[in-house]
Design a protein around this nucleic acid. Structure first.
Lengths: 170, 170
DNA sequence: TATTGTTATACTCTATAACTATA
DNA sequence: TATAGTTATAGAGTATAACAATA
């Protein structure tokens, strides 16, 4: 129930202890109960992970969002824009420009569905599959590999399971 | 991590109209390797947690970012804007409007430092402390409580530790 | 000259309404 | 009438440059 719990017991004691009362030092700030706030920890970790992802995948010029689109197209060929977008939590209007960029780079194609001429069937191109394969290699061997090195494979699996559960059931 | 490719030639033909039949063809999409991507799980979990935070703290009208500012001001009275902002990863220019809003609501005050008249010393007001106390209660008893109910207190502690480590050392 | 708070600005994300062409 | 893709737009969030007051 309590939100307080200094993570490593380090941040708070870093601060020079003045006798009770006031004032003004120029050292590190006390994180206080911020260290026990899950949302804050989630946000900071997410920013750091995305930053590293961007750096690792820079050779193929894909953002995390673009990478997720390519992954989903690969796993679900022949779906339309609405299905792909909503599965990723992307609103349909915002998905248009994203697809324009990917299609403009020749990574995927829109084709009118013969069954329902309103929908655009989405498919990876060969170049899209090649780019995705290269990106996956970079993510595996650099991004996720460093993460496993940091917290261990078992912890990474447990972390992934908890995050998925939170996203699904919280 | 390396996941097999989707079975070719299966998914596309699923999508035709069966006039008399049940619609078992346009079911859920396969998440594919997306399920193993830490960044994706982090992002989705973070969005969900922030959404719930916003809902739980709605009675006192504080965003996660505003809450983090009040927490930090409470733990570090008498600091200036640059110190508070950078500790939270907020750029100084973007902190101005945030403070305007909080000060406009009477939750904190800026006062010129006597030592260095360039800086603004920040302090919570009584109203700010009261609002923060009320917000903390809501976060503890509703937001974090539900999270513990979902994954358990030990898991929450472990999760927090891993996220902090990632944010710090990754 | 350097720093604090600030303004201005721009770029990305996200969110909603409304249009078009189909159904 | 309803739906898929699209356009336009508005709002957050975030990033950099530059200016006035102060050091």
């Amino acid at each position: 129930m309590t939100v307080s719990k200094p993570a490593a017991g380090k941040s708070i004691s870093d601060r020079k202890q003045h006798p009770a009362g006031v004032v003004h030092e120029s050292g590190e700030l006390a994180m206080g109960e911020l260290a026990g706030l899950l949302g804050y920890a989630l946000k900071r970790a997410q920013l750091r992970v995305f930053e590293d992802f961007l750096h690792c995948v820079a050779p193929v010029q894909l953002t995390p969002a673009q990478f997720s689109v390519l992954l989903l197209l690969d796993a679900n060929p022949g779906r339309n824009q609405t299905e792909i977008a909503t599965t990723l939590g992307i609103l349909r209007p915002n998905f248009v420009a994203m697809l324009d960029a990917l299609e403009g780079r020749g990574l995927c194609v829109r084709t009118r569905s013969p069954n329902d001429r309103r929908s655009h069937i989405l498919m990876l191109t060969d170049k899209g599959r090649a780019t995705l394969a290269r990106a996956k290699k970079l993510v595996e061997t650099q991004h996720e590999a460093r993460l496993i090195e940091l917290i261990g494979e078992d912890n990474r699996t447990a972390l992934l399971a908890m995050l998925a559960k939170i996203a699904r059931e919280f």
